[in-house]
Amino acid sequence: MWIYKYNDQFIYMPGEEKLMNEHEKMPEGFTDVPPPVESYIAKFDPVEHKWEETATQEYINNLKTKPKPNDLEILKEQNAFLTKQMVQILRDIKGLKSL
């Protein structure tokens, strides 16, 4: 059976799982209860014998990456930037002509 490690604060330690024979004694800091598949900071409750999610929504949101813009979005941004530059250049030229 697979066992899952948690640290001294009962936080799940991903990658520290071990395969153990059923007749062996459970080592300290491990449980046979699998943590949630989609968890960020899972904490084990030894009294309830279950995992809880302890990550805040802000922490979770910060981990999510923004999708890369597609080609059309990039072109729109470049077009807006160039249009803004062109307007500024035309204003500068108009100001020089009036001198």
Rank of each mutant, 00 (worst) to 15 (best):
W2M: 13
W2D: 05
I3P: 01
K5Q: 15
K5E: 08
Y6T: 04
N7R: 01
D8F: 03
F10D: 15
F10Q: 15
I11T: 09
Y12K: 04
Y12L: 04
M13P: 00
P14A: 03
G15I: 09
G15E: 09
G15H: 07
K18A: 11
L19W: 03
L19V: 12
M20P: 03
M20N: 03
N21Q: 14
N21H: 12
H23Q: 08
E24D: 14
E24P: 00
K25G: 01
K25A: 12
M26F: 02
P27C: 06
P27M: 05
G29W: 04
G29C: 08
F30T: 06
T31P: 02
D32G: 13
P34E: 08
P34R: 05
P35I: 09
P36Q: 08
P36I: 03
P36T: 06
V37M: 10
V37Q: 10
V37D: 11
S39C: 15
S39L: 00
S39N: 11
Y40H: 13
A42I: 07
A42E: 06
K43P: 02
K43M: 14
K43S: 08
F44N: 04
D45T: 03
D45A: 05
P46L: 05
V47Q: 14
V47F: 10
E48F: 00
E48K: 15
E48C: 00
H49A: 14
K50M: 11
K50V: 06
K50D: 09
K50H: 07
E52K: 13
T54N: 02
T54F: 00
A55L: 04
A55I: 06
Q57W: 01
Q57H: 01
E58S: 10
I60V: 15
I60P: 03
N61G: 00
N61M: 11
T65A: 12
T65I: 08
K66E: 13
P67H: 01
P67L: 02
K68G: 01
N70T: 05
N70M: 05
D71R: 07
D71I: 11
L72R: 08
L72Y: 10
L75Q: 13
L75S: 06
K76D: 14
E77R: 14
N79Q: 09
A80D: 13
T83M: 11
K84V: 00
K84F: 01
Q85D: 12
M86T: 12
V87D: 12
V87E: 12
V87A: 09
V87M: 07
Q88H: 06
I89Q: 02
L90D: 11
R91I: 09
R91N: 13
K94G: 09
L96T: 02
K97M: 11
L99S: 09
L99V: 07
